[in-house]
Design a protein around this nucleic acid. Structure first.
Length: 510
RNA sequence: GGCCGGUUCGUCUAUCGGUUAGGACAGCCCCCUUUCACGGGGCAAAGACGGGUUCGAUUCCCGUACCGGCUACCA
């Protein structure tokens, strides 16, 4: 029987979740759900110096907003708890010891200062960053160079030390990456990574292997930046005697900055004016808030959609997918190898697509919230009609404010500059009469209003074209929005007449 | 520097050796629209370079160039 698929997303709680991180979650999630498996979130908080208050909560809020609910996590519980590595601290040492016992790892007593000295000493133009590797370990302070007695003495004295993996000489480690195919490394080129730190915490390298094993992870997906350390992990699986259980790997391509080169960073968003984080993130130390896609006015469906199509496609021309469609269509083999430059314009297009496709009923709650935040109280029944009328001209949720406010509150400013140049007494008379006609009309429907409007223009010997724009500006405030008579119908007789008269008086005083 | 990965229109991408190299975003033009959008139609735009393999390479192999990642007791 096939093993049940189990994947994990393993973030460090160090700050906001950016595009790349959410996409990694997404691909994990899609793969798991596609295969009827479980999606686990494990918090990798092994570095206390980088721990950031609130970051873990933020991660779960983001997952909830995106609709990527974990099956197991510190928040959701599960049979392999705890899901926080700091709480699993005690379980790693035995594996480190096991590796030392078997000769696959060793104790190293070098102090940070000694390491620094070593790097400075061996640094050359050809080798700018000397590695603690098979060559240099013979010159350092460790259980390979020290006598057994010395080592026991140091250990007994409680001397601070780390455990390092002993990379073998000139062996080939290879594995099949689900995206890249076979990738191989020569072990002589890989350094002796620290497995267990002096504070007793494991490094990522040990923790990821131990926890993936213990949690029965079948597929391990992570960013491409992890590819260089894959041989360490593969060897660890082997040295711990778990080769048969090793998950299948896939290293996801990076998301690159839109201009120039390099991977996308928070700075690029600040610089180019678009969000990089999924949701607003406030740094607890500086108090500085970084805008998120959610707060910028993206729909979660659009955010998920655009992320999925950054580096993946189903082979057809289809670009708009619901979560269920993504799950059905997803396959790791169709993920791109190369990194993708993030394009905010395209992201906006996805959002507009999703707003367009959403029904007014689906949008009403959020739109009401958005309007309320801008100080506009919007009534439910009318709001539904307004949303239907304006949604196709909204790219971001915030656009509903400019596109929808004038239905509920009179404009505070009018683009009279666009009326004035061609304004004259004749037009003034026309609008006075129009207001009167509107005021006395019995039926208040767009179609009838348009007829009334046309009858009066004809009676005055005017062309509707030169009066339509002034009317629009009177009702809307500017040169935008849906059909003028639809607007008039919705805002009602009194309000329509009021707005016409208000602008008439402004024009008169200029 | 070393190791690993990558390379199709400006951008995201399709192509599983044979295509006028397709689509989308952005750009430009036209239509629709007495506003702004939506929508419809059109234009422009690509296989990094050099060698092989092959009847035939964007596709397979090698080299070069360029780009990226890693090179911490960070993940």
């Amino acid at each position: 029987m096939e093993k049940k698929v189990r994947v994990r997303f393993a973030p460090s709680p160090t700050g906001g979740l950016h595009l790349g991180g959410v996409r990694t979650v997404l691909f994990n999630y899609l793969f798991a759900k596609k295969h009827g498996g479980d999606f686990i979130v494990r918090i990798e908080d092994t570095d206390q110096t980088r721990f950031v208050e609130g970051a873990e909560e933020y991660i779960f809020n983001t997952l909830a907003w995106c609709g990527l609910t974990p099956d197991e996590s510190p928040l959701h519980g599960g049979p392999y708890a705890p899901y926080r590595q700091s709480e699993r601290k005690a379980s790693y040492k035995q594996y480190a010891d096991q590796l030392v016992q078997a000769g696959y790892a060793y104790y190293a007593f070098d102090t940070p200062a000694e390491l620094e000295k070593m790097r400075a000493e061996y640094k050359t133009d050809e080798n700018p960053s000397p590695q603690y590797n098979h060559l240099l370990r013979t010159k350092m302070h460790n259980s390979l160079t020290l006598s057994e007695a010395e080592v026991s003495e140091l250990l007994a004295a409680g001397t601070p030390h780390v455990v390092r993996i002993k990379m073998p000489l000139d062996e080939t480690v290879s594995f099949t990456d689900m995206i890249r195919g076979e990738v191989s490394f020569n072990t002589s080129q890989v350094d002796d990574k620290v497995l267990l730190k002096a504070d007793g915490m494991p490094t990522y390298h040990l923790a990821v292997v131990v926890d993936d094993y213990l949690m029965k992870i079948t597929h391990a997906f992570r960013g491409e930046e992890w590819l260089p350390s894959a041989p360490v992990h593969i060897l660890l699986w082997k040295y711990l005697g778990w080769s048969a259980e090793m998950p299948q790997w896939a290293h996801l391509p990076l998301i690159l900055k839109p201009d120039g080169n390099g991977k996308l960073s928070k700075r690029d968003g600040d610089r180019l004016g678009f969000p990089v984080f999924a949701m607003d993130w406030t740094d607890p130390k500086t108090g500085e808030t970084t805008i998120g896609f959610k707060e910028r006015g993206f729909l979660p469906e659009a955010f998920v959609n655009l992320l999925a199509l950054l580096g993946w496609n189903d082979g057809t021309d289809n670009e708009v997918f619901t979560m269920d469609e993504l799950i059905a269509a997803f396959s790791m083999e169709r993920v791109h190898k190369g990194g993708a430059k993030f394009n905010y314009e395209k992201a906006l297009w996805y959002n507009q697509e999703w707003i367009k496709r959403a029904t007014s009923a689906q949008l009403v709650e959020q739109v009401a919230e958005t309007l309320a935040a801008a100080g506009v109280a919007a009534d439910g029944a009318i709001l539904l009609r307004v949303i239907d009328l304006v949604k196709e001209r909204c790219t971001l949720m915030a656009d509903f404010v400019t596109q929808g406010s004038f239905f509920f509150v009179s404009p505070s400013e009018w683009d009279t500059a666009s009326i004035q140049p061609k304004w004259n007494d004749q037009k003034n008379m026309f609008f006075i009469e129009l207001a009167k006609a509107f005021e006395s009309s019995i039926v208040w429907e767009a179609h009838d209003l348009e007829n009334t409007f046309k009858e009066i223009t004809a009676a005055h010997g005017l062309k509707p074209g030169e009066l339509m724009l002034p009317l629009r500006i009177m009702l809307v405030g500017g040169k935008f929005g849906p059909g003028v008579f639809d607007i008039a119908e919705i805002i009602g007789k009194q309000e329509t007449v009021n707005r016409i008269q208000k602008v008439l008086s402004i024009l008169e005083h200029n």
